[in-house]
Design a binder for these strands. Structure first.
Lengths: 364, 364
DNA sequence: TCGTTTTACTTAATCGTTTCAGTAATGTAC
DNA sequence: GTACATTACTGAAACGATTAAGTAAAACGA
């Protein structure tokens, strides 16, 4: 016996059949003891539990039970990239948080699965995932794993990835939100803008581009945001093709710094930067500080997401608010409802709004 | 057909038997087509895939396959509380990140499971979790779910929860690290200390206590840290029983604020506060600012964990560094190795060290 | 040409439950 | 005392695969 009577030997599997044999009853009875107490006498039920305890039977095997019941008790969450990347991104973490609330409400587990982006080891993990349904989050339009999931014919909810028939879609109006961010800067009087963007294509290496061909982006929200920035800029009569876009391989502070250094080192330095995420914007803020530029005096910065830390930077970040928690919660609730026979909440677009904090001001 | 030929109807389950029947072959052959290509002719294999595509068979059912193979392809991560709480705690998120690296290396999924703390809906989720092994993270000593997991006799790794025989344990020297934090403050000349603590017992409601009876804490690391603080203070010849301890229900900024307000409102105000987590310390920093106290001029603050944001607050936080990512990675790797026949890396204590930043100084 | 391998499948057992359809035994109604 | 429920179990068929062992046919060596 271990401390407190616990011990953790990994042991031979004990089956219900063995428990039944030890007691001279049928396996059905053992099953009933665990699943339908009304089907046997309380006395026998106790005996079953006692025999189980003695033999080291911890209750019905979850896999066999799942097979028979055709229900696993877990949902899969498919993320575009390595999970270690997701965990480093506050927006993704907030999304997971929302999903977890829904799964916990339903007593379900949450199986996190990495997508097929760089460094994916084993796409089979998705096809083999033991789950009752999927939330597909943040996947590139052309990621083959989306099809792998759809082919399994399980209930699915898509997030930030519209356009698959018969699959509920949860997202935001990325284009409108991005346009609002750009309009804000233009309204303040900025004329020389720059964009700090997510990666546009799979093979990107990072670097400069311009705003003239947003359609090539393979990731839906990136495309929409680029379109939003472009349309607001065009609306204002500014030359879209002259707006520099720096493409970042990842949504991290480091990439944001690199982007800012590139953009702010240009001959005609932008007076304001539109960032596709708060993480990128945080990096921009750091870079600006290092370059001796004051924000918002010398440079205005707008983020996207409004993660918790956006209110705490100095200056606090002007950004597009969206609730990642709500997004995950809604996606999770829709999926959970589809797993049962419940009427799912309505899928659709969640609201966004521009939060004006301290990182934007008229150009100096 | 949907857009791009995709569609997401949730459909009747198609079995290998049906595919076999459609082709007039045995189910074994269909299985071989997917699992052992060398067992059938390439031609027939192609035919199997074609028939599968036509019938909408997406490959072997993961549950049935898992039952037969006695292997699921996922590990469970059991967390003490609601997952939404874990996702709000950077330390837990960093830990998950580490685990995810290990699971991805092995091509495994990661099933997150909430523990039985307040608000737990369904303890059965743990007993029914379809996984090959468990990482038990951050559980209270008396949490019944630990036993539920151990009884399943699967490979398990315990984190921050020592003392179960035959189960590898990963952690840090909480007592020593806490002592180092207290010694740092004492060395600076502080004599009136206060502690901002995690919850000590399950039924706590938050509030003031003192350092004299650390043994009552039900959560191992809390107990050890309290002991560490106490021993350093005793060593310095200061009266341990006069050190106020504020017990926080959760490791959040808000609780940290509340704690700081209580502690700093006392008749003989502490000149330095020892916080059991960076999250709590962040709250303390906020409260100090609101109270018009300068840190470290009027108040020194020491955190615990060294999460990423600790380097970015103003002033940057002096704290005890531990690598949650490494902790998760090590725990994950040990578990993964135990699932196979590999020799697991050695379990044990990870290093910590005090990081002196700007939040501590001699008392004013 | 005969015996031996090899190739290409099939048969049937098995993984560990759940559950439908019984069947005796006991209880209740009149 | 007969008819009808109710209680307390059992038997056997799923659930959807994998796999060891077996078999017939084709290929091969000498």
């Amino acid at each position: 016996m271990g401390v407190k009577g616990k011990e953790g030997k990994v042991g031979r599997r004990v089956t219900s059949k063995e428990v039944a044999a030890a007691l001279g009853v049928s396996p059905a009875t053992v099953s009933n003891a665990y699943n339908r107490p009304d089907q046997l006498s309380p006395l026998l039920r106790e005996k079953v539990f006692e025999a189980a305890r003695e033999l080291g039977y911890a209750g019905p095997d979850p896999v066999a039970r799942s097979l028979r019941r055709r229900r696993v008790g877990a949902v899969g969450v498919l993320y575009s990239d390595r999970l270690s990347y997701a965990f480093a991104d506050p927006a993704a973490v907030e999304f997971f948080e929302g999903v977890s609330v829904a799964t916990e409400e339903a007593g379900l587990g949450m199986l996190l699965l990495p997508g097929s982006a760089r460094g994916a080891r084993d796409p089979e993990a998705v096809g083999n995932a033991v789950v009752d349904g999927f939330v597909i989050y943040c996947m590139a339009d052309d990621d083959p794993l989306v099809d792998v999931v759809l082919e399994r014919r399980l209930p699915v909810v898509l997030v930030d990835h519209p356009g698959v028939e018969d699959v509920p879609y949860v997202g935001i109006d990325d284009e409108g939100a991005a346009a609002a961010a750009a309009e804000h800067l233009i309204g303040l009087g900025h004329r020389r803008l720059g964009v700090v963007s997510f990666e546009l294509t799979r093979q990107m290496t990072g670097g400069l581009a311009d705003l003239s061909r947003p359609e090539r982006a393979t990731f839906g929200p990136s495309r929409a945001r680029l379109r939003g920035y472009a349309s607001a800029i065009r609306q204002a009569g500014l030359p879209v093709s002259e707006v520099p876009v720096y493409e970042c391989a990842e949504s991290t502070r480091e990439e944001g710094r690199v982007a800012a250094e590139a953009l702010l080192g240009m001959e005609s330095r932008p007076t304001a930067l539109l960032c596709m995420s708060d993480q990128l914007a945080f990096g921009v803020l750091e870079a600006a500080r290092d370059l001796g530029l004051s924000v918002p005096g010398d440079l205005s910065v707008v983020g996207f997401d409004d993660v918790a830390e956006a209110g705490r930077t100095s200056p606090p970040l002007t950004t597009v608010h969206q609730s990642h928690v709500e997004k995950g919660l809604l996606a999770g609730r829709i999926l959970v409802a589809r797993l049962g026979e419940d009427e799912p909440p309505e899928a659709g677009l969640l609201p966004t709004r521009l939060i004006e904090r301290g990182s934007t001001a008229p150009p100096g």
